[in-house]
Amino acid sequence: MKRNLFFIVLVLIFAQIFTLPLYGQGVFIVQKKDVASYEEVKNNFIQFSFVEQIPNLNTSPYYLDESAKDSEVLNSIAEKKPSIVFAIGSYAAKKVREAMPDVLIVAAMIYYPDAEKFSPNEKTVLIASLGSAKDLMEQIKKFRKIKKVGILHNSQISDSANLYISDLKSAGVEVADFSFTSKDEIQAIFQEVKGQIQALLVLPDSVTLNSDVIRYIVTECISADILPLSLNDRMVSSGFFFASYFSTESIGKTAAKVVKEVASSGKAPSDKIRFPSDSESSMNKGTLNAFKLKIPSGIKIGVIYE
């Protein structure tokens, strides 16, 4: 009995020894300054970190502003030898990786890792921050029959677009891929898509988020009876018909779960991209009326823009 007790105590001591360095060095938050959505993700992450009981979390974030002072901020973090950094946004994630090559990073709000040149690896986990194309199609099919969907995206994010193409196909629809290098090419694409597709998923970037481009896409889609869809709520508030997206709450919650998992294991999980379990949805009622559609019974829509 005493011998068994001795071995149990010994195991507990070794467990403390091997987990103490990771917990003792702490978890730090780094983000770019003055970005409202990043603040929301950070606040939700901190809230859920208490639920997950993440040990040694520094709840005071470190802000970067793309100035020479960023090096000082990053060096001060590196001196503390963090075990994990939660980086919000591509700028923060890349700067942390440059300053601390060996630190474990959990990163969020990076829409297109290929274009941002920040891909997940053995020391990095990405929290998916756009919505699920499959969830989107499951909702849209309740409004009308969809056989073929187009996906419109910048050619610089083709690798990421392929993931959404696979997601759409898994929802049981055919997919037509349309890429552009400048906004001038979008007009020619619309001449090609008319009569081919019943819906168009537009991936957000600096071109497609332009207010003039959004108005053009919505106008052309209504004229051609093509439902304009997005994985970004902002585009719906500007006129797109429907979006399925991950809220900042869901992103922060998922990040807290992943950080706790990494803190417990001391290594990044095998699946380097984690998807939030909860999707939100939004719809533009004016665009709904333009298509002469009605809201199906039983469908749950989080936000309806008038």
Rank of each mutant, 00 (worst) to 15 (best):
Q198E: 15
A199D: 01
A199V: 07
L200A: 09
V202T: 07
P204S: 15
P204K: 06
D205R: 03
D205S: 13
S206L: 13
S206Q: 14
S206H: 09
V207N: 03
V207P: 00
V207M: 12
T208R: 04
T208W: 06
T208C: 04
T208Q: 05
T208E: 03
L209Y: 07
N210W: 04
N210I: 11
N210D: 15
N210K: 02
N210F: 05
D212N: 14
V213D: 02
V213W: 01
I214P: 04
R215G: 13
Y216C: 04
V218K: 00
V218S: 09
T219Q: 14
T219I: 11
T219F: 05
E220F: 06
C221R: 08
I222H: 03
S223Q: 10
S223R: 04
D225I: 05
D225C: 08
I226M: 08
I226T: 06
I226C: 10
L227K: 02
L227Y: 07
P228S: 06
P228A: 03
L229T: 00
S230C: 07
L231I: 02
D233N: 15
M235W: 00
V236P: 10
S237H: 14
S237Y: 12
S237M: 14
S238H: 08
S238V: 00
G239D: 02
F240W: 11
F241I: 00
F241P: 00
F242D: 04
F242K: 03
A243S: 15
A243K: 02
Y245T: 14
Y245S: 09
Y245G: 03
Y245C: 06
F246G: 03
S247T: 12
S247C: 10
T248H: 13
S250N: 14
S250D: 11
A255E: 06
A255Q: 05
K257Y: 08
K257T: 12
V258Y: 01
V259T: 13
K260L: 11
K260I: 12
E261V: 06
A263N: 11
S265K: 07
S265C: 09
G266M: 12
K267A: 15
A268N: 03
A268M: 12
